[in-house]
Nucleic acid binder design. Structure first.
Lengths: 137, 137
DNA sequence: TCGAATCCCAACTCGATTGGTCGGGATTAT
DNA sequence: ATAATCCCGACCAATCGAGTTGGGATTCGA
């Protein structure tokens, strides 16, 4: 179970933007070179973040990306959900399709718990937390 | 981020064995048919669990698998680690290779926190918890 | 009006992983 | 012996991850 590069890069880019929040939009090439991320790949990542409504792009000469909301209003969970897809660990949680196995439910509780643990951990951190030089532990 | 079938099947098999703990070994074919898992695939899974020291196999006519330890001594984290590999979210946590990026550390704290949350959630549940008909929440 | 900077997008590659299957061994109780 | 069982390496198809390529469409400034 490993975080994808997509997700790692995406969060880095968002933290980067959070550090420049309020200023002019930042171009793809700037983010990519400052963060050491392959530009064409970052482009795909930003497209997802845009589609999720987390960043706003402006095109043309001095265009670029900026955050769509205040840094305190964007959680890491938002970013991860936008990049990793639905983010539910096992298929049968929402639809609850029967659970015909006797111990299937027992195992499933594990995945549900884990789901909650992950969710709790990620929704509790916002980009503004990350721009301050230390996550309080 | 999704749990693999391998892992799902593996935990189901372990819970199954936990429910019969202390009795005769259970054959692959029995587990597979009772749990609805493709037998040849389950065989590969059991091999990993055996290599991890979580189950013991005996061959020959009335052979099969049994747990190597008491159900309370096997955590879900043990099972998942045996089946999912190293289970660390991002490569640079143990070796800490520089962190030359300015905000790399900020993002990394997120992954470390998440790592802890997952680890805590999984080490806290043992097979004996799962054989009782309800995980206390 | 032209061109450069910028975002937008679909298609492609390439290797690893997932989810299996297949075919034969080696062991052991009866 | 023989049947039941685990053991194991090889194989396979589909998907996913991590990018790349090549071209658009927009917008600002000169």
């Amino acid at each position: 179970m490993r975080i994808s590069s997509r997700c790692e890069y995406g969060l880095r880019a968002m933290v980067y933007l959070a550090g420049r929040s309020g200023a002019d939009p930042v171009s793809l090439s700037t983010i990519a070179s400052d963060e050491g991320i392959p530009m064409a790949f970052l482009e795909r990542i930003m497209a997802r973040l845009r589609d999720a409504g987390l960043v706003v792009a402006t095109r043309g000469v001095s265009g670029g990306y900026r955050l769509s909301r205040a840094t305190a209003e964007i959680s890491v969970a938002d970013v991860v959900a936008a990049l990793e897809g639905p983010l539910s660990l096992v298929g049968c949680l929402p639809d609850d399709h029967g659970c015909d196995r006797s111990d299937g439910c027992a195992s499933r509780q594990v995945w549900r718990r884990l789901d909650e643990a992950i969710s709790d951990a990620l929704t509790g951190i916002t980009l503004s937390d990350l721009t301050m030089e230390a996550v309080t532990r």
